[in-house]
């Protein structure tokens, strides 16, 4: 900040996609009202979706997607070597995302089911942090552009980016929503991490926990609530595994 006599740098930023839908990186080009300022603050040197530039000289790397092929491991390690800061962008990068549902099946069966007689190189899906060290994570499906902006502001000028660690319920209540359970729907709000402003419950859909678990979630009580309200274990467990953030957590399984 100028008033503190601290000048921002203009870091070189690269964006890379791995196994994903590319929706999160598209968010980088979103939020038109601040896009010009965003692009002024950083220098984008490698971003397949918006630019033909392909420089290998970058300081900050945003990684979208999970790792599901052996060649991706090599590529990711090379990026890690070059980047000073590596940011996992979105649920797939942070937790594996929907891709991770595949891990519950026999790989060759899954491969045959999808690709028929033309099987692809495939391995169990892993989050980025399971392959290389990650400096920062922006969870969500898709990520929220505002959070990307705040990460950039932090990297430029040390501005705070304390993403909430409390459950979605807080933000859902701040939207005056009627609780999804009151409406008879399953919702991971009480155990899922906030920061999204609860768009799903606000739109009438129970939370799927795309930002992963809140800090110190009370799973035991959550399962008790689900049971009391008549939700089957299978439904709850399917919901928990949907985005891959609740690894190893399941209703009806002794911890």
């Amino acid at each position: 900040m100028r008033y503190l006599s601290i000048e921002p740098t203009k870091p070189k930023v690269a964006v890379f996609d791995f196994t994903s839908c590319e929706g999160c990186e598209l968010q980088l080009a979103n939020k038109e009202e601040t896009l010009v300022d965003f692009l002024k603050a950083v220098e984008i040197v490698n971003f397949r979706e918006v630019s033909s530039a392909k420089s290998d000289d970058y300081e900050i790397a945003f990684i979208e997607g999970a790792v599901s092929r052996s060649d991706e491991i090599e590529r990711l390690k090379k990026i890690r070597e070059k980047a000073r800061v590596l940011v996992a962008l979105g649920c797939c990068a942070c937790y594996g995302g929907v891709n991770k549902l595949k891990n519950a099946f026999d790989l060759s069966t899954a491969n045959r089911e999808i690709y028929g007689n033309y099987p692809k190189d495939s391995m169990p899906v892993r989050a980025i942090k399971d392959v290389v060290p990650v400096d920062m994570e922006i969870p969500g499906c898709p990520v929220n552009k505002e959070e990307i902006e705040r990460i950039i502001q932090h990297l430029l000028l040390d501005i705070n980016y304390n993403f909430p660690v409390y459950p979605v319920c807080v933000e859902c209540k701040q939207k005056f929503n009627v609780c999804m359970f009151e409406k008879g729907q399953l919702c991971l709000g009480p155990i899922a991490r906030a920061g999204c402003s609860a768009p799903c419950p606000t739109g009438g859909l129970g939370c799927y926990g795309c930002r992963g678990p809140a800090a110190d979630p009370n799973y035991d009580e959550f399962f008790e609530i689900a049971r009391r309200r008549g939700f089957a274990e299978q439904e709850v467990n399917e919901r928990l595994s949907f985005f891959g953030g609740f690894n190893g957590i399941a209703m009806g399984v002794q911890k």
């Binding site: 503190l4 006599s5 705070n160």
Partner: peptide, 15 residues
């Protein structure tokens, strides 16, 4: 933290 961290970077004359 954030605030004290940036103060340590600030220069004389900052407001």
């Amino acid at each position: 933290g954030t605030v004290t961290g940036v103060l340590h970077k600030a220069k004389r004359g900052a407001l």
